[in-house]
């Protein structure tokens, strides 16, 4: 053990989440995202939840979201068509903060 570089997935696995399986709190319009050149979300999301798939399309999974809101303020073309806080009690639960 010891301090080392960690992948986002490994870091997220340390957190406590209560994922709202019924209602995603963030939704994208794939078509708008397909036309976006900057795709800042790939870099600014601290949880690295925005990724490019084999066809160079954005793939996104809202589980693991830290609820910071950075993707929303950085989304130039409004491909993020829904960004709400998760419903009460759902989402991340920081034990230290």
């Amino acid at each position: 053990m010891g301090v080392k570089q960690m992948e986002a997935a490994e870091l997220l696995s340390l957190n406590k989440f209560n994922v709202d399986e019924d209602e995603p709190h963030i939704e994208l319009d794939k078509e708008i995202c397909g036309q976006c050149v900057e795709k800042a979300c790939l870099y600014v999301c601290p949880a690295v939840l925005y990724r490019l798939n084999k066809n160079d399309e954005i793939s996104f999974d809202y589980a693991g979201c830290l609820e910071c809101g950075t993707c929303r303020v950085m989304c130039k073309n409004k491909g993020i068509i829904k960004w709400l806080y998760p419903r009460g009690t759902f989402g991340v639960n920081f034990r230290y903060g």
Binding site: V3, L12, L14, N15, P46, L66, T70, V92
Partner: peptide
């Protein structure tokens, strides 16, 4: 060194 990461957070 020797420490253990126990949480990862983000905030604006």
């Amino acid at each position: 060194e020797g420490g253990k990461t126990v949480e990862y957070g983000a905030h604006l």
